[in-house]
Amino acid sequence: MTHDIAIIGGGIIGLCLARDLAREGQDVVLIDSGHHAGTTVNAGSLHVQMQSRFLRMYPELVPNLEASLPLYPAAVRSWQALATDLGAEFELRRSGGLMVCETPEHYEFLARKCTRERELGLDVEMLDRAALRRIAPYLGEAVHGAEFCADEGKLNPLLANEALRRDLHARAVPHHANTRVTRIEPQPDAMLLHCAGGEVVRAGRAVLASGAGTAGLAASLGLHVPVVAEPLHMNITEAAAPLILHLVQHAERMITLKQLAAGQVVIGGGWPARFSGAQDFPTVEPASLIGNLSLAQHIVPPIGDLRLLRSWAGVNTTADGQCILGPLPGEPRVHVAVPGDAGYTLGPLVAAMAAALLLGRDPGFDVARFTAARFSPAATG
C-alpha cells in the first residue's frame, strides 16, 4: 500500500498537519519515534513578541526574527480557531504577556523594541512600575517595568495534544507510534521510509516534521538542514489560588511563568538540561532547578510559599530563528515543516501553511525566505 503523504513526527506540527490533510481527503500516515518529543513536555506558552535577550545575544539574526514576526499573532488566532473547531477545552487564554525588566537601561531597550514591534504590526505597549502594579500586583519590587503584548497567552498542552489525537483517531488516520524512520529512499514511483524495526512505509510524498530529527533524515538524502536539539528545564508547583494572570517572561534572564486553570504554576524559560545515556534522554540539571526556582520567586515572591511538584527536561529545536517550510532542494517529494522560535505557538499555523504548500495552494504568507534552499551551498557560499 502506498499512502499519499507520510508525515514523520507526531508533535504539534505532525498532529495538526495530519488533521489538515485528512480533512482534504488525503490518505495520510503519521509516524512518530517519540524520541526527544518536545511537544509532549511543552510548557504551553503562547509567545508573540520578540525575545529581548535573544536580540542582544544574536543581533545578526534580528532580520530573521522581524521577518517572522507577523506569523505569531496569526498563530494565536489559529490556536483559537482550532479550539473552536475541535470543540475542546484546553485552557487557551489570550490574557496578554508581560516581558519584565529590572533596570532603567533594560527598560529603554524594551521601549525601543516596543516601538519597532508596533511598526511591524504588534499590539504592544510599555508599562512603567506604577502602571504595572495596577495590572500585575503579584510582581516583586525588583521589577522596574515591562512591555505588554495583548496577543500573548497560554494553554494546557497536555489537553490540546490529547484533543488532536482523539480527532485523528476519529478520522482513522494511521499512527505508527514508537517507530523511528532511519532513512528515506527515493524511488521512481514512491518514497520508501525505512524504519528501525525493519518496516518500510511507502508514500507518494513525505514531510519531515520531526524537529531536530529533521537533520538526520535530510542527511540521508544528501541534504543539509541545520536544526539542533536543545534540552531545557521546566518546573511545576502545587496548586494555588489565582495569582499570575499573564504570561510572564524576563527581558534579560531565563524565566517564564504562567498559572494553569487548576492553579499550578509552570516555570520555564530556557534553563539548560542535558542529554544522558545511550538514548540521549533529556535530564534535569540540579543547578538549573535551583536557578530557575530562585529567579521565579525573585520576580513573583508569593510563589516562594508553594511546594515544587515536579521538574522535567524537554527538547526545543533551534535553527536560525525562522521556520523551515516547503520542498527540499532537489527532492520536491520531500517537504520540511519545522517551526521557528517558539515552535509550539506556531504549530497549527505552520501546519496549515505546510498543508497549503503540499496541496499547491497559497500558504497565506510569503514563504520564500523560509525554504530549506537557504542552507544550500549556493545560498551560504
Rank of each mutant, 00 (worst) to 15 (best):
R134I: 02
N156V: 00
A130E: 15
S276E: 15
M191L: 15
N42D: 11
I236V: 15
L208R: 05
L325I: 11
E152K: 03
T182S: 05
G343C: 07
M1D: 12
L293T: 06
L69Y: 03
L289Y: 09
G364D: 09
P59I: 00
S276W: 00
A6G: 08
L15E: 12
P226K: 02
T318N: 04
G213E: 04
V338S: 13
K113W: 02
L61N: 09
P70M: 05
D85R: 09
V248C: 09
P231K: 01
S276Q: 13
L232Q: 09
D20A: 14
A212Y: 06
A368L: 04
V227C: 10
G269V: 05
D280F: 03
H335F: 14
A74T: 11
A111H: 07
S276C: 05
T40A: 15
S68D: 14
E230C: 05
V173G: 10
G211H: 08
A209V: 09
A273K: 00
H35A: 13
R361I: 00
L217V: 08
H194Q: 08
D341R: 04
A74R: 14
I31N: 07
E24T: 04
Q279R: 14
A355H: 05
L132R: 06
A356K: 11
I31H: 11
P186A: 10
R134K: 13
L243Y: 08
L46D: 08
W79E: 08
D128I: 09
S376M: 12
L359C: 13
E117C: 01
F90L: 03
P59M: 00
E108H: 04
P63W: 07
P104K: 02
I303H: 04
G140C: 11
